[in-house]
């Protein structure tokens, strides 16, 4: 078992922002669905600004439930979620709008995320809800599409794009809101190896805190210096990704398996 470590991010110098609150702070979060099924049993998780953290766990561990708490879509259980110092409070509508701007959730199926008729309108949806209009809005859309290399597709309807392109546009739709933290649900699912690498390059180039929910352990190792394991509604482990992946007892206990032939000790980490 690996203990909690305070992973100092190599890219942010603590002297720059001495009092920056953590991007995400989850305290004692517990939640049961209205049908009585309890998904979370007291989750504690702190993600510092600029960190990239992988959230690992078997199916049914409560990962999606946790994600939906981060931007206040699910509320009403015990515990608290704080995003860069602002507490998620369903009663405060103004604060909730700001929380949803700060937490950019990229859902697993880009067809769910991209619901507007064109890429441009879809990327504009979030910032427009936040009140941006006109040239400012156009600049924001352009900026977000440029970050994922999809500027020239702005006027295409989403269903004319390849799956990898749609995933990148889905990332742009939340980047357009200049989030404090990017939450990705299975970002590598259904991607071919080239699209997978392109997305990894994009995620590494972004100057934003990332929480990545995934079953793709090599991808977690490649992108996230730190990982946490969510199992049966609690954080079962938290530590450097490579240490977790090499802990065979831990992996077995939480139904996590490395792909055949993959040895986390043998790869050179891009962020190491």
């Amino acid at each position: 078992m690996v203990d909690t470590v305070t992973a100092a991010d190599p890219r942010t110098d603590p002297r720059d922002e001495p009092a920056a609150p953590p991007s995400l702070e989850v305290r004692g979060l517990a939640y049961a669905y209205p049908d009585g099924h309890q998904a979370l049993f007291g989750v504690d998780l702190t993600v510092a600004r600029g960190e990239r953290v992988a959230l690992l766990g078997p199916n049914g561990a409560g990962k999606t439930t946790l994600v939906l708490h981060l931007n206040g879509i699910l509320t009403g259980g015990a515990g608290s979620v704080t995003v860069a110092g602002l507490r998620v409070d369903p009663a405060d509508r103004g604060a909730l709008a700001e929380i949803r701007r700060r937490v950019g959730v990229v859902f697993q199926d880009p067809d769910d995320q991209l619901f507007m008729p064109t890429v441009r309108e879809d990327v504009a949806f979030g910032p427009a809800n936040a009140g941006l209009r006109g040239a400012e809005l156009a600049a924001r859309v352009h900026e977000a599409l440029a970050l994922v290399g999809m500027e020239e597709y702005a006027d295409r309807p989403p269903h004319h794009l390849s799956f990898g392109q749609r995933r990148r546009v889905a990332v742009a739709t939340v980047l357009a809101m200049r989030p404090e933290i990017l939450v990705l649900d299975e970002p590598s699912s259904n991607l071919d190896p080239a699209s997978r690498r392109e997305l990894a390059d994009i995620l590494r180039s972004l100057d934003v805190t990332v929480l990545m929910v995934t079953h793709d352990l090599p991808y977690a190792l490649e992108l996230c210096p730190r990982s946490v394991v969510l199992s049966e509604g609690v954080i079962a482990a938290d530590g450097p990704t490579r240490d977790l992946l090499c802990d065979e007892a831990l992996m077995r206990a939480h139904r996590l398996e490395l792909p055949f032939g993959f040895d986390p000790r043998s790869v050179t980490l891009p962020h190491a």
Binding site: L68, I73, F115, V174, M177
Partner: peptide, 13 residues
């Protein structure tokens, strides 16, 4: 339902 969640996540009111 999933689309609606995605919309709420981006500030749909």
């Amino acid at each position: 339902e999933r689309v609606h969640l995605a919309m709420l996540s981006r500030g749909y009111t």
